[in-house]
Design a protein around this nucleic acid. Structure first.
Length: 133
DNA sequence: CTCCTGACTCAGC
DNA sequence: GGCTGAGCCAGGA
């Protein structure tokens, strides 16, 4: 079974996005920003988690793409708290400096080693659970 | 208007 | 158990 791919669920998950749909008449970017901004300090989440919350889990790429705009969005969005499913700082290269991301995370109390969040699973913040629609 | 790229993820070999 | 291919949506040229 290769590692714990179980995670949550792939096929039979995705809660009914019925109630959240009407909550964001804005672009999909606004939704991402809103969720990311609600990430508690010292916690991190993954693109897929946000994507799943928005109902676009099939397109986690768009979440990352939205983060690109987050860099210019206001107020600033803690994009450093958003990493890939492995906890690796994939987007650190897009920050002002290649070390800005891990620096910010460290300031938040998150341990980063080798461009990867330590105990990522432990400090993982699930929007679907936190926001609980 | 059409083609390509992109900070991901899953399934297949 | 690691690498490759394909899918997704949106924005830029």
């Amino acid at each position: 079974m290769k590692k714990k791919t179980s995670k949550k669920v792939l096929t039979a998950k995705t809660p009914p996005p019925s109630g959240e749909v009407g909550r964001g008449p804005y672009s999909f970017f606004a939704d991402v920003f809103d969720v990311v901004r609600q990430i508690p300090k010292g916690k991190v989440t993954s693109y897929g988690a946000v994507a799943a919350y928005l109902g676009t889990k099939l397109s986690a790429r768009m979440v990352g793409w939205a983060m690109n705009a987050a860099h210019t969005a206001k107020p600033k969005v803690p994009a450093q708290r958003v990493v890939n499913r492995n906890g690796m700082l994939t987007g650190k290269h897009h920050f002002a400096t290649p070390t800005a991301m891990e620096e910010l995370l460290k300031k938040d109390g998150v341990t980063v080693k080798n461009d990867t969040v330590v105990d990522f699973k432990k400090i993982f913040w699930d929007p679907s659970e936190a926001l609980a629609l």
